[in-house]
Design a protein around this nucleic acid. Sequence first.
DNA 1: TGTGTCGAGCTTTGTTCTGA
DNA 2: TCAGAACAAAGCTCGACACA
Length: 293
Amino acid sequence: MELLQLKYFQTVARTEHMTKAAKELHVSQPALSVTIARLEEELGVPLFDRVGRQIRLNFLGKAFLKKVDTALGALEVGKREVADLAGLERGSVLLATTTLNRIAELITPFLAEYPHINFRITQASTEEMKVELLEKGEIDFCLTSSFIDRQGIGNLALMTEEIVLAVPSTHRLKDRQRIHLSEVANDPFISLKPGYSFRKITDDFCRKAGFIPNIICEGDEPAAISGLVRAGLGVAFLPIAAKKELPSLTLLHIEEPICQWTPHVAWNENQYLSLAAQTFRDFVERYDYEAKP
DNA sequence: TGTGTCGAGCTTTGTTCTGA
DNA sequence: TCAGAACAAAGCTCGACACA
């Protein structure tokens, strides 16, 4: 049994789709099929149920996957512990985030202080995906839109930030500084897809204002939303920091209800954190978002 | 140390089978 | 009809090993 077989099995088990897994692993689909078949032959039992053109992880596969996750996770931790013990200068921090837009705000001052530490940043669409990556030990940290209330997950608040309403330059309220959210109850909204915690937060704002938003466009990439607002498709919630990044956007302060969010950095408390990761967490803890230029 | 051989594992290409 | 899994064949790369 080889590590490569186990890594391939992990990916196929997660995707339950040979072609997708092969693409993810950068191998051809036949090669992956053969590798999985060899692993099953070696174990003497099928790990997947083949139903027509679909493959589904069976109960044996599920049981094996738990052991594989544990084994590969332990190896990864071992690698990092050894690297730390060896005093390697070039530590790395693995981070997942939804949007790459504002990540630089946090990382730039950190790298200025610790230029020898590498960052590996991966994009994860939803909070669920991020928690899954944390629990599997595939990342050290994730940036989330809110506190993750789950056992074994540590959280550090980055800041509390005002959420404003972005409107097209032709909008009837464009000359107003402040509005009540209920004033746009009938406007078309552009939003992130369900599953994003920022979407849940903004849906709650609307609920507090007494309406369900008429969402005409749901996207995956927060950065694209501002473009659709500018094009006049509708209005959208954005963090106030968007004003600095997109000065041409018309942003209205919301008086009622109070619209704020508190992004967090979260990590798995049960997972070994490398020296580099511990350094990053300490940095986040003492970093003053409000005081930055 | 350099070279040839062998096997493992991979790729690409094409085909078959099956189910939506 | 189309998409996806599985399989086969031919060829390539690479590492291990034997041998001069």
